[in-house]
């Protein structure tokens, strides 16, 4: 049965779906009252952000003479927002759709999803951490600062728990920092736990342990901010000057759900370009849809991106949390599986 048919049959379900409306309104209000500019970023791009872990949707743009150009649906508004930051917009946010391919058969993903990104200039990522605490508190669905989610009562009032990745691996998986940052030692520790490590990269072993032993325990009573990610998974985060092993990246988890991913942004264009090139090589190696990385974005960094920090938050997951549902489809009037058939 399609969602609209279920709503017709069970009108009591409307309430759950209307939560999204309120969340969107609250988010806009939150940032407008703090003086952020809301910007619209393109959904159709010539050069999506170079990310080997994301599959893009490719389409074709034609001019009036039917000359084709490859075009891609945005996987995030990040590069567009950073161009505006380089141009001098200051604090800004986008609340928009993004598209990621090949993410079916997952209760946490929908081919198109609503993403919130905000950036602050002149601050490091600690300020974004407190923004997250304040934002959750400001959402109308959060009554009395306690949330019931999938059988857990979660106290979302600030301050949240904060834990470095190194601490999390030591506490939940019994892996010390000595082993964590060394591919051979980490593989050895993983094999002892019964994981198969043949042909696995450091990132795969790291994430497999993380997903099996750490993530399910995160944020069941209080939201958790995990910070200081290993440099190997820095993504677009700045490496710590006093500790080159870790990057200024954090994620926050509530009720076992990964809600957002934040960085003190990398502003060094050379480092950014070399990371892009590395990602493009990886995309080719993995046999994924190949595209050109965004030279215009590198130009923007070259022109001078101010010191800034930012975050991407899955808005659908916030709605999941407030609606106490464990499938993203239960928050969408038109989930991908209604449109394209359940897999």
């Amino acid at each position: 049965m399609k969602t609209w048919q279920r709503l017709k049959k069970q009108p009591e379900l409307w309430k759950r779906y209307f939560l999204r409306e309120q969340v969107i309104r609250d988010i806009r209000e939150f940032f407008h009252t703090r003086g952020f500019h809301e910007v619209e970023t393109p959904l159709l791009l010539k050069n999506p952000p170079a990310e080997s872990y994301v599959d893009v949707f490719r389409t074709t743009l034609y001019d009036r003479h039917r000359n084709p150009t490859d075009a891609y649906l945005a996987t995030s508004p990040e590069t567009s927002l950073k161009k505006l930051l380089a141009a001098g917009i200051g604090n800004c946010f986008a609340l928009t759709k993004s598209f990621r391919n090949m993410e079916t058969q997952s209760r946490l993903h929908n081919p198109e999803f609503t993403i919130l990104e905000w950036y602050r200039t002149g601050v490091a990522y600690e300020k974004i951490m407190s923004d997250c605490e304040d934002l959750l508190k400001a959402l109308s669905g959060v009554s009395g600062q306690k949330l019931r989610y999938q059988g857990n009562i979660i106290d979302v009032s600030p301050p949240w728990d904060r834990m470095t990745i190194t601490e999390a691996f030591s506490r939940f998986a019994g892996i010390n920092s000595h082993d964590l940052y060394d591919v051979k030692r980490l593989a050895g520790a993983a094999r002892k736990k019964g994981y198969r490590t043949d042909g696995a990269t450091w990132e795969q072993i790291y994430n497999q342990i993380f997903l099996n032993e750490i993530e399910p325990k995160l944020g069941l009573r209080k939201p958790v901010i995990l910070y200081e990610y290993p440099a190997a998974v820095a993504a677009l985060a700045r490496i710590r000057k006093d500790n080159p092993l870790v990057a200024e990246r954090f994620e926050f988890y509530i009720g076992g759900l990964e809600m957002g991913d934040a960085y003190t942004e990398l502003i060094d264009w050379r480092e950014q370009e070399s990371r892009f090139k590395r990602e493009m090589k990886e995309i080719e190696r993995l046999g994924k849809t190949v595209y050109d990385y965004d030279q215009d974005f590198i130009q923007a960094l070259k022109s001078g991106l101010p010191d800034c920090s930012g975050i991407a938050v899955g808005v659908d997951r916030i709605v999941m949390l407030l609606a106490d549902v464990n499938d993203i489809a239960e928050t969408l009037f038109f989930p991908g599986k209604d449109l394209f058939g359940a897999e």
Binding site: E51, Y53, E103, T104, Q105, S106, R107, L108, H109, T201, E203, Q204, N207, F210, L211, E215, V233, A235, E251, E258, D261
Partner: peptide
């Protein structure tokens, strides 16, 4: 279920 950790394989 398929899962993709943030910026991971």
């Amino acid at each position: 279920q398929h899962v993709n950790p943030g910026k991971g394989s």
